Computed example of a mutant assay.
Amino acid sequence: MCGNNMSVPLLADAVTVSGKEKETAAVIFLHGLGDTGHGWADTLTGIQLPHVKFICPHAPKIPVTLNMNVMMPAWFDLMGLSPETPEDESGIKKAADHIKAIIEHEAKNGIPPNRIMLGGFSQGGALSLYTALTCQHQLAGVVALSCWLPLHKSFPLASSGNKNLPILQCHGEKDEMIPVQFGAMTAEKLKYIVNPQMINFKTYPGVPHSSCTQEMLAVKEFIEKHLPRI
C-alpha cells in the first residue's frame, strides 16, 4: 500500500487483488449492504486478468433506516426499496465523492481514468452507476449487478455528459430484494443518459439476489473488451 492512501479514506483498508503482471487497468468494485470488500474479492479473483487490479473498498458502518437503524456497512442510508421511497441524497453524493477520490488516486499513480472501471452489486452497483454517470472523467465502463439508479429523477441533468460510457447491467429474474423490473426500469432510464447501444442488460432465470457463474463470465468478457491488455 502507498503511504498516501490515508488521504483517501476508503482506500486505507480496501482489499486489493493485484494483477500478475504490470497493472495497466483497475476495476473498483463496491459490495452490497451489510457486506465488506472481502465478500467480492474472492469472486473477482476467479475472473482475474493479469494486467488488471481489483480494488474492493469497505463501506463505512452507518445506521440504516431500512433495517431499524442498525449499524452496518452501507454506502449511504436506505429508507426503503421501492422506486418512490425518499432517498439519502447527501449520503449518495458524499459516497460518490469518496469513489471519485479513489479514481483520482489511481490516476495520480499511473492508471488513467479511461483505464478504470467501476462495478458493484446491489447498493454498491447503484453507487457505481451514479458515480460513473456524474464523474468528470470518461471511465472505461460500469458493471451494475442487481441494482438501480439512485436519484434517478435528477438525470439526465445530473449527468456529466459522457454519452459513450459502456454499461453492463445484470439482474437475477428471481430477485425478491430488488425485483428485476427495477433493473429493467433502470436500463430504460439509462437510454436517456448514455447512447442506448452502450447499454447491455442481461437477466438470469432462476437467480435470486446474488450472482451466478454465467453472470461472472459476462463480467469477465466485459472487462476484457473494455480494458484490453495494452
Rank of each mutant, 00 (worst) to 15 (best):
C2Q: 13
S7M: 13
V8H: 03
P9G: 13
L11F: 06
A14F: 08
V15W: 01
V17H: 00
E21W: 06
K22G: 07
T24I: 06
T24Y: 04
A26H: 04
V27W: 00
V27A: 02
F29Q: 10
H31E: 08
G32A: 07
G32K: 01
A41G: 05
T45M: 14
I47P: 01
I47Y: 06
L49E: 15
L49D: 15
P50H: 11
H51Y: 06
V52C: 08
V52W: 03
F54Y: 10
C56T: 05
C56I: 04
A59F: 05
K61W: 00
K61T: 08
I62W: 10
P63H: 03
M68E: 15
M68A: 15
M71R: 05
M72N: 07
P73G: 11
P73D: 13
F76H: 11
L78E: 05
G80A: 15
S82G: 12
P83D: 15
P83W: 01
D88L: 10
D88E: 11
E89Y: 03
K93W: 04
A95L: 00
A96G: 03
A96D: 01
A96E: 04
I99F: 06
K100R: 14
A101I: 00
E104A: 15
H105R: 01
G110H: 07
I111Y: 00
I111F: 01
P112R: 03
P112V: 01
P113V: 04
N114C: 07
I116C: 06
G119V: 00
G119S: 07
G119A: 08
S122N: 10
G125M: 08
S128A: 15
L129G: 12
Y130L: 12
A132K: 02
L133V: 01
Q136W: 05
Q138N: 13
L139S: 10
A140G: 11
V142W: 02
V143E: 05
S146Y: 01
C147T: 10
C147M: 03
P150V: 03
L151W: 02
H152K: 14
K153Y: 05
F155S: 09
F155C: 12
F155R: 07
L157R: 14
L157V: 11
S159W: 02
S160C: 12
N164D: 15
P166C: 10
P166A: 11
I167A: 02
C170G: 08
H171Y: 09
H171G: 14
K174L: 08
K174M: 12
E176C: 02
I178V: 14
V180Y: 08
Q181N: 11
Q181R: 10
F182D: 11
F182E: 13
G183D: 04
M185C: 11
A187S: 14
E188Y: 01
E188S: 12
K191Q: 15
K191M: 14
Y192I: 04
I193R: 09
N195S: 15
N195P: 06
N195T: 13
P196W: 00
P196T: 00
M198G: 04
M198Y: 06
F201V: 02
K202A: 07
P205H: 08
V207P: 04
T213L: 14
Q214P: 06
E215A: 07
M216N: 11
L217W: 07
A218I: 00
A218S: 13
V219I: 14
E221P: 02
I223W: 01
E224I: 00
R229D: 15
R229E: 15
